[in-house]
Amino acid sequence: MRREGSPWTGLWAVFFKEMADHLTGLRMRILEGLILLSALAAVYTGTQTLRQTVGEDPYLYLKLLTTAQDPLPSFVGFLSFFVPLAAIALAFDAVNGEYARGTLSRILSQPIYRDALLFGKFLAGLGTLAVLLLALFLLVVGLGLFTLGVPPGGEEMARAFLFLLATLAYAGVWLALGLLFSVLFRQPATAALAAIGVWLFFAVFFPILTDLAASALLLQADPFDPESQLRQANLALWISRLSPNTLYAETLTAVLNPAVRSLGPILITQLEGAVLGTPLPLGQSLLLVWPQLTGLFALFILLFTLAYVAFQRQEVRA
């Protein structure tokens, strides 16, 4: 049955309201504080290390983002840890919270479709994260200008923006997951726990499992046949790429380190004529991570679609 009227009616009203809620909410303040502190710490140690080598590296700012010094991880390491948490924190009570407050039927009785509510909430979460990431990034670059005293290059900035885009896609995956759980579970606490459970699984247990799988696969390979070993190694890599964390990590590796030429096993014959250690142009790096980026986007569209379908089928009454 065809319905009349645009599903986008009211989208921007929802978007701005939710965005304002996020930006003024206590939850976001806490997250901002946490992320800011850790980013500052990471950048501080990064600059301490880099100061000694300024002038030797054409991609100084990318190094600033990725340099780690024990016991602190790099800025990028911090982000990949906090971004999923922030995304989940923004989305886990998006829909069930409306049920709990008794506002859902009131909002849906206004002349809007459910589509507008869900899209608006999702876009507001993504927008909030984008603002947060951009602010953080500019802060880091600004600090870098102060402490290193070298202006960033054009390609460096292009790579950095690509990094932001990839981070946003990664955040989108967790935002969509949080949204899905907020539709599926009536209790916000259950939804939050479930989403954090999934995040923990991919952050902690999945790498262990893939390691186990990889060694098991390697045992199956014929020790005297390099080709079968390569096949098994590729299979293990493929399995590990089922996790959004792997996809994101690989994207970052290639985008932030121009010297990276391959994200998998590579044969010595393929390196013939290559000058090792020379940086790839941006376009080539982008080509390298294209599948990973596509995978991230696909995953987030899939999760969002699931949330969308589940929400459309849900009864309005609590």
Partner: peptide
């Protein structure tokens, strides 16, 4: 069912 927006604008 077909024109929910028009209905909801007046109800």
């Amino acid at each position: 069912m077909r024109e929910p927006l028009k209905v909801k604008a007046k109800v």
